[in-house]
Design a protein around this nucleic acid. Structure first.
Length: 845
DNA sequence: GAGCACTGC
């Protein structure tokens, strides 16, 4: 096909006109997949002389796309890659000074801006796939805007986006022109399931797969699932289906060995069912897909700035993301997409995913901005302002690492840290390693934590054997397991077979090697001490501590993997950690995931054992000693302890001395309130009593009853607990006296009179009244008990009418009413006719 | 279910 037939050329003159004049320097280009925007826009600008003599930089979110686009454009222009058209990604630079169109990844541009913010030689910056809203893309655009407004008014900025929602962007970039182009894809017919169900996504997907196969649909299937576990369940379920005959069913996710990924993406003799994670949403294109079945779920990374914990939880995807997934069915021919959620659910989902700037740990970009004299982060032109809490969290961490002064200005250490393209924690470890004489091993460890996990984890038994080999001998850190694995891979030249045998991801190992070399290069430039000398595991472990002292964990109960973390957090150590016998360690990874059922689990991994003396040497001012009264959960008793704390984490404690009784009551009350130590005598009647008081207070304000708030309730429980030193002392303790004492005797008599526990009925039965916070109190009464009652039942001097649940002899509700007259007149005759037949032995009047 | 989506310097 002639490239000039691509849809983007329909707007060629508009693009050129938008940027032609010297004072027109911002363009938003809205063009969907298949429009040719990524390959053609830079060429259009170059060929019309918009770039003058300067360079056009095209920003891409992914390395693979960066390389392939550059190659494509070079071919189209008949030039050698690296001359007129080139690219640069991490560790791979194919361009020269004469390169006019340069494709780069987001991190490369951010580094380039950091090196020289005047961006010499660059005339146009094109931000491609900007709707993905990656962190570095957002920051680079903000910096580019600042630079254009100050140093480089001639710099032209083009933002390309595939989605129609450009409103916020237009405002941000104003004054800017917006140009829209059509795409070239086939229509995809979208179906929803009727109603959300509790069925598992794999069962739902299998049912829909069977239905669509039965309808005679042609072509291959792509099923989206949130992760490897769900993918495996889906594959099992589909394989067991009769409809799977003639299909090859394959998983696709990032952790799969490359050969298996290629197999899923490549051609196949049979029809295919590919069950995939989000890799297939943006990063990979698969030919021949005609049907998409979408679970509507994805594992989403977020950083919780309140706890300083990374979470990876299964969430519903946005509408934009589900459209992107559906689009995968329309690349080669018209397709269809089944969404495993209801249309109602769909309408309630957010339009877009939250951008990364609102979701991720900001410490690295904050340090980058501080290095560019942006001391006031709140004044930076954010497209979307991050949460204040996330900024504060980043500033605090950077201060703790010594990179910021008073949380504001970058320090010389901070500047040196920034020369290493890693998270500031690892950069700080490298500087610590310089002093300790172990830069090489720490650089390797930093390299090992970037990107994909080095060790494959999905092969069960084989994994255990592999671990045995890798964890051979004493070790104080899980980092050393990774180091051993990498050294093995390196020694074997990353040979795939050798790597696979030990469960090592060969490609990742090779990548780690390149990163390691890069870090050593930088270390050399920064004049770090690189002399090869033997460093003990302890020396290295001390450096690791300096990157993660805020993630110190202590195990008070050696029998479990549960740990207390600094800053009132808790978690569990992963079970294959080599430090599983250690009492104290730092975790380089703290991650919250979905556990069984609805439970969340905080997993601590990549742990390094810590000795208390190291902490006293490194952080002498962070130790506190105090005596405290605490609740011991194993004996359920209150004890007095002498504690030693590191910051706010109790490292050890000794029992002894007299507990403080007020403190004891407070602690016991907390156990009661949180349900761990229930009071036998605190039953429903007590809760009803409190509700009766609170309700009556509203109905008859003239009585001047006090409100019993949640805080009062806690105070009552605390009072019950007073004087006790253990659960044994309070378990059977009477509670009524204390509860009732909250009111005077007179007030108590009002409550009994106006908000009684029971309501007397004509046949001498007393119906129990149930009070509630939101709505009128109600009783339940059988028809027979209501004979002789007409109209309404009232309490509180007639201010409140009871709701009556009229019950059949089998206690099933027949009617809910506040007025029996209507019931007797309208409904009763019919009800009676029916019930009398079923319950002839009852009295019917 | 034993423990985890995807990128990027």
């Amino acid at each position: 096909m002639n490239r000039r037939e691509l849809p983007i050329f329909a707007v060629e003159s508009e693009i050129v006109a938008a940027l032609r004049a010297p004072d027109q320097n911002r363009l938003i280009l809205e063009a969907p997949t298949g429009s040719g925007k990524s390959t053609q826009t830079p060429q259009i600008l170059l060929d019309h002389g918009i770039a003058g003599n300067g360079q056009i930089i095209v920003l891409q979110p992914r390395r693979l796309a960066t390389r392939l686009l550059a190659k494509r454009v070079a071919e189209e222009r008949n030039v050698q890659l690296g001359q007129e058209v080139g690219y640069q990604i991490r560790l791979d630079r194919v361009c020269t000074n004469s390169t006019r169109i340069k494709f780069v990844t987001e991190g490369v541009l951010l580094r380039q801006i950091l090196d020289d913010e005047k961006l010499p030689g660059v005339s146009i910056l094109i931000f491609d796939e900007f709707h993905e809203r990656h962190l570095y893309g957002d920051i680079s655009l903000g910096r580019a805007m600042q630079i254009q407004q100050t140093l480089r008014p001639d710099l032209k900025i083009v933002v390309m986006s595939a989605t129609l929602d450009t409103g916020a962007l237009e405002k941000y970039l104003a004054p800017a022109r917006t140009v829209s182009s059509a795409g070239r894809t086939y229509p995809v017919e979208i179906e929803y399931i009727k109603k959300n169900t509790d069925d598992s996504p794999w069962d739902l997907a299998t049912t829909e797969f069977e239905r669509i196969v039965a309808s005679g649909q042609e072509g291959d299937f792509l099923i989206f699932m949130p992760g490897a576990y769900e993918i495996n369940r889906t594959i099992q379920a589909v394989r067991n289906s009769h409809a799977a005959r003639g299909f090859t069913i394959m998983p696709l996710h990032g952790e799969l060995p490359p050969a298996e990924q290629d197999r899923a993406v490549g051609p196949c003799d049979q029809r295919k069912v590919i069950v995939s994670t989000n890799v297939a949403e943006t990063s990979l294109t698969i030919q021949g897909i005609r049907t998409v079945i979408d679970s509507g779920l994805a594992r989403m990374a977020r950083f919780d700035p309140y706890r300083g914990i990374n979470t990876l939880l299964i969430e519903k995807i946005s509408r934009a993301s589900s459209d992107q997934r559906a689009g995968r069915a329309g690349r080669t021919a018209p397709g269809r997409c089944v969404r495993l959620w209801s249309q109602l659910d769909h309408e309630r989902r957010p339009a877009h995913e939250l951008p990364e700037v609102k979701r991720l740990d900001l410490s690295e970009v904050v340090l980058t901005l501080k290095a560019s004299q942006i001391t006031d982060l709140r004044a930076f032109p954010w497209l979307e302002m991050p949460e204040e809490r996330a900024l504060l969290r980043a500033e605090t961490l950077l201060s703790d690492l010594g990179a910021l002064d008073h949380q504001t200005h970058i320090t010389p250490i901070g500047r040196r840290m920034l020369s290493f393209p890693v998270h500031p924690r690892y950069a700080r470890m490298l500087l610590a390693a310089d002093k300790a004489g172990c830069v090489r091993p720490i650089a390797l460890m930093a390299a090992l934590t970037q990107g994909r996990s080095l060790l494959l984890r999905s092969e069960g038994k084989k994994m255990d054997e592999m671990r045995e080999i890798l964890t051979d001998g004493e070790s104080v850190s899980d980092f050393f397991v990774l180091v051993r694995a990498w050294r093995y891979a390196d020694k074997n030249n990353y040979a795939p077979d050798a790597c696979r045998r030990l469960g090592i991801h060969g490609i990742t190992a090779r990548e780690v090697g390149r990163l390691y070399a890069q870090f050593l290069d930088i270390a050399k430039q920064e004049r770090l001490d690189l002399t090869e000398k033997p460093a003990s595991e302890e020396t290295i472990a001390r450096c690791i501590v300096q990157g993660f002292s805020d993630q110190l964990a202590v195990r008070h109960d050696q029998g479990t993997l549960r740990c207390a973390l600094l800053h009132n957090r808790s978690g569990e150590l992963v079970r294959d950690s080599v430090v599983r016998d250690a009492r104290m360690f730092v975790a380089a990874e703290v991650r919250e995931i979905d556990g069984k059922g609805d439970q969340l689990r905080v997993l601590l991994s990549l742990a390094t054992e810590v000795q208390e003396p190291w902490l006293s040497e490194l952080y002498p001012d962070d130790f506190v000693e105090r005596t405290a009264t605490v609740f011991d959960p194993t004996t359920r008793r209150i004890v007095s302890t002498k504690q030693v704390l590191f910051r706010d984490l109790v490292l050890r404690q000794e029992i002894g001395g007299q507990p403080n009784l007020d403190e004891a009551a407070r602690l016991l009350a907390r156990e009661v309130i949180e349900g761990r130590c229930p009071l036998k005598n605190w039953d429903d009647a007590v809760d009803q009593w409190i509700l009766r008081v609170n309700c009556l207070r509203q109905w008859m304000p003239e009585l001047g009853l006090p409100e019993i708030t949640t805080a009062d309730r806690h105070a009552i429980i605390e009072q019950i607990c007073h004087g006790a030193l253990g659960y044994k002392d309070i378990k059977e303790k009477p509670v009524w006296d204390v509860v009732k004492d909250w009111l005077s005797h007179e007030q108590q008599s009002w409550v009994d009179k106006y908000a009684p526990e029971r309501y007397p009925l004509p046949n001498a039965r007393k119906a129990k009244i149930t009070y509630r916070m939101d709505g009128a109190p109600f009783i339940g009464a059988k028809i027979q008990d209501l004979y002789g009652v007409d109209g309404s039942l009232v309490i509180a001097s007639g201010r409140t009418t009871l709701v009556i649940n009229v019950l059949a002899p089998n206690m099933r509700p027949i009617q809910v009413t506040q007025n029996l007259s209507a019931f007797w007149k309208d409904s009763y005759p019919k009800v009676k006719q029916e019930l009398q037949r079923r319950y002839p032995r009852h009295n019917w009047q």
